[in-house]
Amino acid sequence: MDDRLRDLQNERKNYKKVLYRYLIILSIGINIIGVELVPILNIPTFLNAIGTILAGVLMGPFIGTLVGFLTSIILGFFIDPGYFYFTFVSILVGFIAGYIFKEYPFNIKTVISASIFISVITAIVGNTISYMAFGGVAGDQIDKITHILIESGFNIFLAVNITGFFANFLDKLLSFALVFLVIIIMDSQMDMQDFQIRWKSKL
């Protein structure tokens, strides 16, 4: 009996390892697809952290951190070296999202609060990096807003910060909304006990 129980526990652990491995790859892929969609959709946002948030919520802060880190490295090598500079921002997103939903239940109230909190933190850090490393340049769609503000009389520092806060807030709201929908779908198809999420059926 003990041997059978031990075998079942080992099978569960192995299943979880494989599941997490595939979800990490999927999360990174979602981030890359999000980045590629931005110029197509022509929206002033990033969409490079959807998978990072998903990984953090489902698998914890350290795996969220790992996904954020790997995403920035891959994007930096294959799409734009500028992503290297924002690696710390991606790491923050994964860690904070993972920590929040490790401590608090996954529901609409926490999702909205987390999206606001993370958008403020990433805006402060991201704006500082953008201003110091690139003189405020952050991306084609986002730069359009910065240029409009500058032409309206704002100095570049203020324009970069206003644009950054707006873009980060929109980005995190969209990202968390998509993650929210994905997890609802997963909950109807899978056993959520395999994940760290503190799930509440009443959203």
Score class of each variant (00 low, 15 high):
residue 146 T to M: 08
residue 133 A to L: 09
residue 99 Y to S: 06
residue 74 I to M: 10
residue 190 M to T: 15
residue 124 I to G: 07
residue 176 F to M: 06
residue 108 I to N: 01
residue 81 P to D: 04
residue 151 E to Y: 15
residue 52 T to C: 05
residue 163 T to V: 14
residue 77 F to R: 06
residue 167 A to P: 01
residue 154 F to I: 02
residue 103 E to M: 09
residue 201 S to D: 11
residue 162 I to K: 00
residue 153 G to N: 07
residue 173 L to G: 07
residue 199 W to S: 11
residue 127 N to W: 12
residue 94 G to E: 01
residue 111 V to T: 10
residue 18 V to R: 00
residue 155 N to T: 13
residue 187 D to T: 09
residue 181 L to V: 04
residue 73 I to D: 04
residue 168 N to V: 07
residue 55 A to M: 04
residue 95 F to M: 14
residue 142 I to T: 08
residue 184 I to E: 11
residue 39 P to W: 14
residue 51 G to C: 07
residue 23 L to S: 09
residue 105 P to I: 11
residue 58 L to T: 12
residue 14 N to A: 10
residue 199 W to N: 10
residue 190 M to R: 15
residue 10 N to Y: 05
residue 55 A to P: 00
residue 21 R to M: 13
residue 197 I to P: 08
residue 185 I to Q: 07
residue 95 F to Y: 15
residue 2 D to C: 05
residue 38 V to I: 12
residue 200 K to I: 14
residue 193 Q to K: 12
residue 13 K to T: 00
residue 25 I to Y: 06
residue 58 L to P: 00
residue 60 G to S: 12
residue 138 A to R: 03
residue 83 Y to L: 07
residue 4 R to K: 09
residue 92 L to Q: 06
residue 117 F to W: 08
residue 41 L to H: 06
residue 93 V to Q: 04
residue 69 F to G: 03
residue 124 I to E: 06
residue 97 A to R: 04
residue 146 T to S: 12
residue 110 T to L: 01
residue 48 N to Q: 11
residue 55 A to E: 01
residue 64 G to S: 01
residue 140 D to R: 09
residue 156 I to F: 01
residue 186 M to T: 13
residue 46 F to H: 08
residue 127 N to R: 11
residue 118 I to W: 13
